[in-house]
């Protein structure tokens, strides 16, 4: 077993474009769930709106890439409004159910044969990333010793981490302001905040929109990363993974989503490679009756599910969080 390969492969993923996507999605969830207490289980829906409309603008409608970006952002605001209006006055679990349903509505609709000529059905869309590729300042392979990336991948993660950094700064600035204080107050007890003359509904809506915008940006990146936008990238589990990322890093901590995403993808890749090595080849280390190569690919998700449960039960504040500041009432 080559430990070094195992570690470098994991590190590659932990810093790579996938980690960027989930960091962005989780920053959005952090604003919504971590700071405001809104259970948006439809982050994948915001990602779908972002990714699909950016891609379709270029690939289907022949518009500019930037129009696509604007359209994706604009429509994610519309989505937030549409979801928020019926549910933000209701209990938290209603928002959860409505958002998860909405994300699935969006995914199934955009992936449908009915809208094939716009969104490409199950195969999705391709050929929309030209503007982004042309902006790439890196022309040769970037080798950092342990890890190395193709120019396009490096451009993706380079620009992506810059966006993540901007997002983190924005969230940091917002959350130390009186505006952020109102959000945290709403998370603790919205009636108390209401009794102090704050328009709770409006603040929740603002939070939902801001989180949704981060979701849309994550959607742009997921499409660019795969140079293809299809329904697979925005399944319900995508949202659940983003929550795991957030909780791992610590909800209501500015850097929580970033740390969470890096750690998450490191561990997931590590497990994947590890079990892959165990079951690889004609005479695998692990007997086939225990685990085949195919079953090995499931181990990471089995462990992830278990980890999410244990994390929530024993360390709800995340790996680096402070229990006293715990955002979720887990006790």
């Amino acid at each position: 077993m080559d430990i070094l390969n195992l570690l470098s492969g994991s590190l590659q993923q932990a810093l790579g474009p996938t980690a960027v996507v989930y960091a962005l999605a989780a920053i959005g969830l952090n604003v919504q769930f971590g700071y405001t207490g809104l259970l948006n289980f439809g982050q994948a829906g915001f990602m779908a709106i972002g990714g699909y409309f950016m891609a379709a603008s270029v690939a289907t409608w022949g518009l500019s890439f930037w129009v696509g970006i604007a359209l994706g952002l604009g429509l994610s605001v519309v989505l937030a409004l549409l979801l928020g209006i019926p549910t933000l006055r209701l209990r938290a679990d209603y928002l959860a159910i409505v958002t998860i349903a909405a994300a699935e509505i969006i995914r199934q609709t955009l992936g449908s044969v009915t809208l094939l000529k716009w969104f490409g059905g199950q195969d999705g869309l391709i050929n929309f990333q030209r503007t982004f590729v042309e902006m790439n300042p890196f022309s040769s392979r970037v080798d950092l010793g342990i890890v190395a990336w193709r120019p396009f991948d490096f451009w993706l993660l380079f620009s992506g981490w810059i966006l993540v950094a901007i997002g983190v700064v924005v969230v940091w600035l917002l959350m130390r302001s009186p505006w952020g204080r109102v959000l945290k107050g709403i998370r603790e007890d919205e009636d108390a905040v209401r009794s102090l003359g704050k328009n709770v509904y409006s603040y929740k809506m603002q939070s939902l929109i801001i989180g949704g915008l981060f979701g849309a940006v994550a959607g742009f990146y997921v499409a660019l990363q795969h140079t293809n936008m299809n329904p697979t990238w925005v399944a319900t589990d995508t949202t659940f993974f983003a929550y795991t990322v957030l909780l791992l890093g610590g909800a209501a901590r500015v850097l929580g989503p970033v740390v969470g995403s890096i750690v998450f993808w490191f561990l997931i890749t590590f497990l994947d490679l590890f079990f892959g090595i165990l079951t690889r080849g004609a005479d695998p280390f692990m007997p086939e009756w225990i685990m085949t190569n195919q079953q090995a690919s499931l181990m990471r998700l089995i462990i992830m599910g278990l980890a999410l449960m244990l994390l929530m039960i024993f360390r709800p504040q995340g790996i680096f969080g402070d229990r006293r500041e715990l955002a979720i009432d887990a006790r």
Partner: peptide, 19 residues
């Protein structure tokens, strides 16, 4: 005010006041 007090538990006392 409320019968069952509604302080914002995870905020400090002074933040409770400022809000």
């Amino acid at each position: 005010t409320f019968q069952l007090t509604k302080v914002l538990a995870k905020l400090t006392v002074i933040e409770n006041m400022r809000i």
